[in-house]
Design a binder for these strands. Structure first.
Length: 586
DNA sequence: TCTGATCGCGCG
DNA sequence: AAAGCGCGCGATCAGA
């Protein structure tokens, strides 16, 4: 399952033996692309970020010529290697190129990589990180960069600005200690993050196959026919009428938490909030219809007909993915709630004729990452099987899987109370290394220190509130300071696990993308990555390529494990489902 | 009437 | 079942 060969797209380039006459200097082609009033400007650089001595002059490109020129350079690889495109933000260039049919092999995203290098503890001793401290990462002026193009004025970042930035980033990377493979790990993270930016654009371009007719059927089943604008669907309205009767509140709007809680109190239902779980404690006859109303109301407002109108077109849902949108390295999304597609409507995600959806997820990824990070050999042994929680339950929890799961999740999230809190001593007794690892991350966070993922992404500095709470002048302020510190401890405790899992997932995605690209043949149906959700991928594949895709997914997972941790006795199994409809995937 | 905060709930 | 982490989003609500 695991590839022994180092992955080409992600590893440091070595001279290799196939082209002995090539010098290392020009083994790779680094092409910097910057905005320019007349379109774009392109320059070939050395790896270190200097103008390439053989071809130092920048080249002006009119806007209409860009796609053809980029494609020409991409298809004229040097020594078998396509160029690495260097640009400020992948989002500014790649979607347009994709729209013109241009797909690229690899890039270097200066914005994303700069964010990582500015915070990473691996580069904390460099000028790059020190200078970055003074710069706000979310500089609003940067957003104006490409607005300038419309007005024909000078872009905020010239080719030379970006060249200097790239050179500075390479210098910072080169200054990372090679100990414990840190430099290679950070370089891998930068490559994977840049690949992620390309994948995000490609997935948005491809879209999730979405059957509007099936979606409409689901809505009609749950809610009744589509109502006129501003009206409740029939089934919601019926529940509303029933609720008003049961709660003796003839004008009740159940969407208003305030009105609702007053009505509940008047009927002797003493709840502090109107959350589902709290309502479920009561057995008043109104609770059933109320929970039903809430469920349907959620479907209607979040993924109803309005959502369908706004986000699905031409049989595809095209959300915007925000790579680096979460400090831990997870992706965020903008528009359409792409990362929250509810189970209720997954039946609308449906393969095209002649295609299948391959849905794969990394089983129990975060606890497995914790085992690997902490090098807890006892837990690794317990977690050898497909079901990690059952294995852990067998040793230390008398086979009680539910208890083992609650305890382990509690350890990763920092639970202090409830069942999870009570189980912590039990977990610690059997698995001291794993628990100790997250405890150490928590202590560091409480004290204001940064913590770092496997590949070198570090947590941001403490909040302003944390700093202000550091000199408490009263017992009250002291308690407050401790609460703020514990809160940050829970964040850093989780950061190392969630973030390292995101490292793994980024490598998995990049490795998978590379393998899928080798399946491509000109002009035929092709397998495409169409969705990614933290530890899950979806590939839309022609039937005849399904087996090859499954192999690619599994091999990519094995490769990701080795890239992060080397050869360790911890498995990262993926579960794969081949389906027509997403709701049959789990 | 607009804006930002809060509630509640969907996903991992 | 919720509690301990990370998100996005729509409706309501408070305040200008």
């Amino acid at each position: 399952m695991c590839t022994k060969r180092p992955p080409r797209a992600l590893c440091r380039k070595s001279p290799g033996g196939k082209h002995p006459r090539e010098t290392r200097q020009n083994w790779n082609m680094y092409l910097l692309l910057a905005a320019h009033p007349s379109g774009a400007v392109l320059q070939e650089l050395t790896k270190a970020g200097h103008p390439h001595p053989d071809n130092p002059e920048p080249r002006l490109i009119a806007e209409g010529e860009l796609a053809d020129i980029v494609l020409g350079l991409e298809r004229r690889p040097r020594a078998g290697q396509p160029p690495r495109w260097i640009w400020h933000r992948t989002q500014d260039w790649y979607p347009t190129l994709l729209a013109r049919g241009v797909e690229l092999e690899r890039c270097y995203d200066l914005g994303l990589c700069g964010n990582i290098l500015a915070l990473s503890q691996f580069t904390a001793h460099t000028d790059y990180a020190r200078n970055a401290e003074k710069v706000t990462l979310d500089d609003p002026e940067q957003d104006a960069l490409f607005d300038d193009l419309a007005t024909g004025s000078r872009p905020s970042f010239t080719l030379e600005d970006l060249r200097i930035e790239y050179a500075a980033q390479q210098e910072a990377l080169a200054a990372v200690s090679p100990e414990e493979n840190r430099r290679n790990r950070l370089q891998l993270l930068l490559a994977a993050e840049s690949a992620g930016a390309m994948i995000a654009a490609e997935m948005q371009h491809a879209g999730v196959p979405w059957r509007e007719d099936l979606h409409a059927e689901i809505l009609a089943d749950y809610l009744g026919p589509r109502p006129p604008l501003g009206h409740r669907p029939a089934k919601l309205e019926a529940l509303n009428v029933e609720l008003r009767g049961l709660l003796k509140a003839p004008a009740l709007n159940p969407d208003s938490p305030q009105e609702l809680i007053r009505a509940l109190h008047r009927n002797g239902i003493e709840v502090k909030s109107t959350r589902q779980w709290e309502l479920k404690e009561s057995n008043h006859p109104a609770i059933g219809p109320l929970l039903a109303y809430k469920k349907l109301s959620r479907l209607h407002t979040a993924n109803g007909w309005a959502w369908l109108d706004a986000w699905v077109a031409g049989g595809r849902f095209r959300p915007e993915y925000v790579v680096g949108g979460v400090v831990s390295g997870r992706w965020a999304s903008r528009g359409g709630g792409a990362l929250q597609i509810p189970r209720q409507i997954r039946g609308a995600v449906h393969a095209d004729p002649g295609y299948k959806l391959i849905v794969a997820d990394a089983s129990q990824l975060e606890p497995r990452v914790l085992v690997a990070l902490a090098q807890d050999s006892v837990m690794a042994e317990a977690a050898r099987d497909q079901d990690l929680y059952a294995g852990i339950a067998a040793k230390g929890f008398g086979g009680d899987r539910a208890k083992a799961k609650v305890a382990l999740l509690g350890a990763m999230y920092g639970a202090t109370s409830g069942e999870a809190g009570r189980l912590m001593p039990q977990l610690t007794r059997t698995y001291p290394r794993a628990v100790g690892f997250v405890e150490q991350a928590a202590r560091a966070g409480e004290a204001g220190a940064a913590v770092t993922t496997r590949l070198g992404r570090s947590s941001p500095p403490p909040s302003e509130r944390w700093f202000q709470s550091q000199r408490p002048a009263s017992a009250e302020e002291q308690r407050r300071a401790e609460s703020i510190a514990r809160s940050r401890g829970r964040f850093t405790r989780n950061f190392v696990v969630q973030g390292s899992a995101a490292d793994w997932a980024a490598c998995w995605l990049a490795e998978l993308r590379r393998r899928l690209r080798t399946l491509r043949t000109e002009g035929t149906a092709r397998a495409e990555l169409v969705f990614f959700l933290h530890d899950e991928v979806m590939v839309h594949a022609p039937v005849h390529q399904v087996d090859a895709c499954i192999t690619a997914i599994e091999d990519a997972a094995g490769a990701a494990k080795e890239l992060l941790f080397g050869r360790i006795p911890v498995e990262f199994p993926v579960s794969v489902a081949v389906v027509d409809s997403y709701n049959n995937a789990k």
